[in-house]
Nucleic acid binder design. Sequence first.
DNA 1: ATTGACTTGTCAAATTTTGACTAAAGTAGA
DNA 2: TCTACTTTAGTCAAAATTTGACAAGTCAAT
Lengths: 101, 101
Amino acid sequence: MNYLGNKLRELRASKGLLLRQVAAYIEVDTALVSKLERGERKAKRGHVEALAKIFKVNEKELITLWLADQVFDLVKDEEVANDVLKVAESELKYVKSSAKE
Amino acid sequence: MNYLGNKLRELRASKGLLLRQVAAYIEVDTALVSKLERGERKAKRGHVEALAKIFKVNEKELITLWLADQVFDLVKDEEVANDVLKVAESELKYVKSSAKE
DNA sequence: ATTGACTTGTCAAATTTTGACTAAAGTAGA
DNA sequence: TCTACTTTAGTCAAAATTTGACAAGTCAAT
């Protein structure tokens, strides 16, 4: 339920960096980075992008996790959660079949 | 991209109701109902519930569309949109396999 | 006890959402 | 056309949510 945060913490560990170093790099408070990693706060897109840079990973990969966590939050307590994803998928297919708009 | 709104308009038409009548029932301004139907404003859960009642349809059905539209909005402009849904699905599976939390 | 890494709590500021209100635009009948 | 009525568009203040710094706290190692 916090795929992005887990990933960020993994990455940071693998580089042997401290919260404070990551925080300095993305120009936020150390406490905020801690919260992002633990999913207590939602990152902004800009944060995710900066983090992808510092960790030298594909930005899309992190953005995907970032969005997935948000989608998850939206439906996690719903019994219709799976149906929701199905319908959303069909909406996506619909627009991508380039029915304009 | 506005499955709920379209559905609401269909339902209203099928019952031969005016915006003003629906609005009175759910106790909001007529203009708001118009906007909900056209997806210009996001309904609140309570609105969706009330609308399910007035139209005598399964509440879950409308809630599903309501949530799906929100998920769609979140990912519609993302190239990773489909991946996002996949990951979200896996997050869902993970929690439902009752790994606690 | 001190130091350093991380976490937690708080809060004001900033941003976003909300929905009524008003006015405009569209529609149909006389 | 005139008129009555439905629907849509624009505006805006109030309400709700988000944001992130700051300060204080915990914890581990020394």
